[in-house]
Write a protein that binds this DNA or RNA. Structure first.
Lengths: 216, 216
DNA sequence: TAGGAATTCTACCAGCCGGTAACATCGCCA
DNA sequence: TGGCGATGTTACCGGCTGGTAGAATTCCTA
């Protein structure tokens, strides 16, 4: 019974570490399957098969299917949270920090867990887990708004409604996960660059260049 | 269209008209249920109960559940298509037409069918129907890109990558359906207004106002 | 008022899939 | 080497839900 599975054969280490690695492999495989076929169209047997394992084995690492989705959710949102933290200490002005966030956000959203953050329904989770996810999402939103407000305060951003601006920005970024699987012709960094160009300068031509500074 | 509370009691008319109205009621009720609980979390019994009817009755108007989702999809996308057509003849410059599109788009996306357009997975549909949906969606995307290119041509828009700009704009608009149910503090028109402000002028302060002109 | 078509209901089925029990195997350690 | 926890498997269950058969009822028309 040799198992030629890729993510399952983890390097040696103590038992606890092995267990942790295998659990991660389960979550990652689940995330990829969900992304490809959707949560409800993915059976636990599918995930198990992708790992060359049987269904009950999954239950040794995860308590149920719902928890898998939750873990994917959490993993993806954790990356976004890290992105926010990094961005907050990235630049001088509010706008520079926001630009930094866009770059990191794009990177996170194109990851395997991007789908789970964006497309998964909170309704598929228990009220408790749904509430937790909602709180995490709201935290990201508040972070974006804070950056925008900071930019307004220091004069690097001029926008009427920070909340709507945050929604628009997050929407554009989240939406990447919808089309990126089919059209990955651009890297996350390149996408972020284009988005920054659009969001910073706007659609209307600028007669005189505002104190913008070039994007790298 | 029909009364929200009890759409089943339709005004008299000939048989064919009655049938059509009731079918519309089924689709609308399905759209609302899908929006509220998600496609997979909504059973046909749920939809039937909402109409004070039993499940087999639904099958008298719709061939199966998948077709319901498809009909919702189509209905929503039809509105977007209309929005595109109207926008194309709305203003003088490409930018004005694009602004008009944003307003109509926001209206469509906040409708009952907005969810189906955006959140429903093509994977829940048969390959044939999925392909049709994909084609319709692609048409909308091309329409947006065309407006942007027209704006570039007539000088009312300055943007480096029309394709990415279209993705960003569509993403921001589509994303409305994610948060609008929980936070409907703004009307679709007000949202569109804010979005236009952001997308046209950008985040960076404009020293001298570009030839933008009116904001209603 | 009879008859037929349109409409809706009761009753039911079958398959999928999440989840579990109980047994088999692996691998470390005394 | 024997034993024991950690892993993993086979075999199974049961409920939910999409879908259907066929009877019942309503409604128009003659």
């Amino acid at each position: 019974m040799t198992r030629p599975s890729s993510p399952w054969r983890v390097p040696p280490g103590d038992r606890a570490r092995q267990h942790e690695l295998k659990r991660d492999a389960v979550i990652l495989t689940a995330a990829r399957a969900f992304r490809e076929r959707g949560y409800h169209n993915t059976s636990l047997d599918d995930i198990a098969a992708a790992l060359h394992v049987t269904k009950p084995t999954l239950y040794y690492y995860v308590s149920n299917k719902e928890q898998m989705l939750f873990a994917c959710f959490e993993e993806g949102l954790a990356r976004l949270t890290v992105a926010c933290d990094e961005a907050r200490a990235a630049g001088a002005s509010g706008r520079e920090r926001l630009v930094a966030l866009v770059h990191r956000y794009a990177l996170a959203i194109t990851s395997d867990f991007g789908w789970c953050m964006v497309r998964a329904e909170d309704q598929d989770l228990s009220p408790a887990m749904g509430a937790r996810i909602k709180a995490l999402k709201s935290g990201i939103d508040q972070e974006i708004r804070a950056l925008i407000r900071a930019g307004i305060a220091d004069g690097s951003i001029a926008v009427r409604d920070p909340k709507m601006a945050a929604f628009a920005l997050a929407g554009a970024l989240n939406w990447i996960s919808h089309w990126y699987r089919d059209d990955a012709s651009l890297s996350a960094g390149a996408i972020a660059e284009r988005f920054v160009d659009l969001f910073v300068n706007g659609l209307a031509p600028r007669t005189r260049q505002a104190p913008s500074g070039k994007s790298t």
